[in-house]
Nucleic acid binder design. Structure first.
Lengths: 190, 190
DNA sequence: ATTATCTATAGATCTATAGATAATGC
DNA sequence: ATTATCTATAGATCTATAGATAATGC
């Protein structure tokens, strides 16, 4: 009990990181504060010294979930050679990503719940969608900037939708068909 | 109290219909049994004479939500002239659909929660995804059947993803850009 | 007699708060 | 002295069940 401020900052980050994972796995409405704190090795009581409300944590956790994906794409882009459009598609539309939503793209699993969330979370999401569109557009082998942006928006939508559908169906063959077909078509038409 | 069997069947349908709408509006985890029964003009106690469990209602309500969309597309297809691929896209990707999830496509709003639901609901979803792919493929102006099916899968994914993203962002201009861009690209590339 | 619905409630769980405790930080 | 965490709990809500009531259906 009663630890240092440095410790508190670390604890705060741990709670957010765990929430970010659990929310993607169970949904924003699917995990309680007690469970999250327990996973962080803490108890419920301490929660409200870290966050004013549950919505506060949701906003931070969603932001953190976006951050993970952003870091990965940024790193891939900055690599030499920078990651290709084709590679991005393959990194998204695969079975490992499908089977591990907790560490994957937040949009594919949280978009509908974010749509029902508070203004802060949705504003944060707008910003992230804008960033991701620009990121994908920068990788698009398109003629002009306008076309690249349009292609990026279609690509982004298809990635998110295909992943959501591939996870929702129980038929494994159908699930794979969705992932593979969308990946192939996106790569061939860009 | 104590009504006829015909009445019970009607009541059952009313509960499912209300659940189908509310689940799309608030998520599968976002509405309680008491609230649903109250909206149907009933009380909690009667619920379990209609359904063995909450999951039973979820399965029926999701099925019902799929049915609505299916009926609409079937009708459009059977019309003379049958609805075109372009028309289908426009009927999906518009602001009215975006702003009324309760009467819209269940995938765009429930896919992530369905992925966490029981086998029955997911099996039912597989069947519906299969149907919808075939439905869209039948409208695709593509060379051969294989190409039509691939295009249908990409189209379906892009529709669902674009709608989910358009609803998640708070920036109205960005939301519209997503809907319009995906609609235009799908129509031009098919 | 059966049953569709009602009222009432058990038992679990969820967000948030109050007050105690044990450490840090001045 | 302040504060990060703990235990305990209030008050709301959620699924599910028990038992009463008033209608149908034989």
């Amino acid at each position: 009990m009663g630890h240092s401020r440095a410790q508190k900052a670390k604890t705060h980050k741990r709670i957010v990181s765990i929430a970010s994972k659990k929310f993607r796995e169970e949904g924003l409405a699917g995990v309680g504060i007690a469970e999250l704190m327990k996973e962080a090795g803490l108890t419920v009581g301490g929660f409200y010294k870290h966050f004013d409300s549950r919505d506060d944590l949701v906003a931070e956790a969603v932001s953190s979930a976006f951050g993970g994906w952003k870091r990965r794409v940024d790193a891939a882009k900055a690599g030499s050679p920078p990651v290709s459009y084709e590679k991005l598609i393959d990194e998204y539309l695969n079975e490992a990503h499908r089977d591990n939503p907790g560490t994957g793209c937040a949009f594919s699993v949280l978009a509908p719940e974010i749509a029902r969330s508070d203004k802060r979370t949705r504003a944060l999401t707008s910003e992230q969608v804008r960033n991701d569109i620009e990121l994908i557009a920068a990788l698009c082998p398109a003629k002009d900037k306008r076309t690249a942006r349009s292609t990026a928006i279609l690509t982004f939508s298809a990635l998110v939708g295909a992943m959501a559908l591939a996870r929702a169906v129980s038929d494994e063959a159908l699930s794979r068909e969705i992932l593979n077909t969308v990946a192939e078509l996106l790569k061939n038409s860009a």
